[in-house]
């Protein structure tokens, strides 16, 4: 066997190894999804979506959980998106290269990797206790905003970086100021990448449990939150709570709630992918 043949065999072997790895992941996910859907799909009906929590599994619903998740989603978006994008614009476009900028940069990258429960502890101390917000939607969404800010900042900076220097130079040469260039040219050109990053970050926030438990989100909330200062629960906490109960009925409820949460996150990721594909088509 000569070298060429050996290389070809290696090439093929690696390809099949890669395919196997890929399908292994998909297979596990498939088994999991099948189990969940098998258990839970028959439980999903209008009552399940509109009922308040209850001690009887058959009567219990996820109204407070999904409205809480929507609240958290909306509030977190309101706080984190403008802050994150503005911070990224400053760091990428205005910040001068200095030791301080470098320090900031290293810290933001590190923050993106901090375990979420740490953010929960931070939120508990600052928002719940110091600012006296209690276990409210506001405290929860502040905490989650902190959690996803680094992700949004990093994604936005990458998007801004992708706008070529020659495009900016052309804008300056026409007499545009820096802000005009950013607003009229750089942001529109990078918007789809920014939106993709933001949606993925928000999808992460929606799936978080640990930091919200730490700040005191409740498992049992017998009312729908009406203001950002109300106490709340969210889907992942509801699921976590139901799974830890002994009755079989609650396990089925949890499976049904998982399907709905998954659907929500899948739709969000789907939108992100759609925006990216559309933007790619547009730029070619």
């Amino acid at each position: 066997m000569n070298n060429l043949q050996r290389n070809k065999i290696k090439d093929k072997a690696f390809k099949y190894f890669g395919v196997t790895c890929t399908f292994f992941g998909i297979f596990i996910l498939g088994v999991f999804l099948f189990g969940i859907i098998n258990d839970g799909v028959s439980r999903i009906n209008w009552d399940f979506l509109t009922n308040l929590p209850s001690y009887r599994p058959k009567k219990a619903g996820i109204l407070t959980a999904w409205t809480g998740t929507l609240w958290i989603f909306g509030l977190t978006a309101i706080f984190a998106i403008p802050l994150g994008i503005a911070a990224a614009i400053y760091l990428e476009e205005y910040g001068k290269k200095s030791w301080f900028a470098n320090l900031l940069e290293i810290n933001i990258t590190n923050l993106a990797g901090v375990p979420s429960i740490i953010y929960g502890i931070l939120g508990l101390e600052i928002f719940v206790r110091l600012m006296g917000l209690g276990g409210s939607l506001l405290a929860g969404s502040f905490t989650l905003s902190l959690l996803i800010l680094p992700v949004i900042i990093v994604a936005t900076r990458e998007a801004l970086k992708a706008v070529p220097l020659t495009t900016r130079t052309a804008s300056y040469a026409l007499g545009a100021t820096k802000w005009q260039t950013i607003w009229n040219l750089v942001l529109p050109a990078s918007l789809s990448s920014i939106i993709t990053g933001v949606i993925l970050a928000l999808a992460r926030a929606v799936g978080e449990t640990a930091p919200l438990i730490v700040i005191g989100a409740l498992a049992y909330v017998p009312f729908v939150a009406k203001t950002p200062l109300d106490e709340f629960t969210v889907m992942p906490i509801q699921i976590f709570n139901w799974i830890s109960r002994p009755q079989h009925g609650f396990t089925i409820n949890a499976a049904a709630a998982i399907i709905i949460l998954l659907a929500f996150v899948f739709v969000m990721n789907g939108i992100a992918v759609y925006i990216r594909i559309k933007a790619k088509k547009k730029s070619h």
């Binding site: 130079t169 040469a173 007499g175």
Partner: peptide, 25 residues
Amino acid sequence: GMVFQKPNPFPKSIYDNIAYGLRIQ
């Protein structure tokens, strides 16, 4: 005004490219 070595149109329509310098005014 300045014209550069490599063509550097904005990722916008032909019309918006020309109008850009006016709109910022």
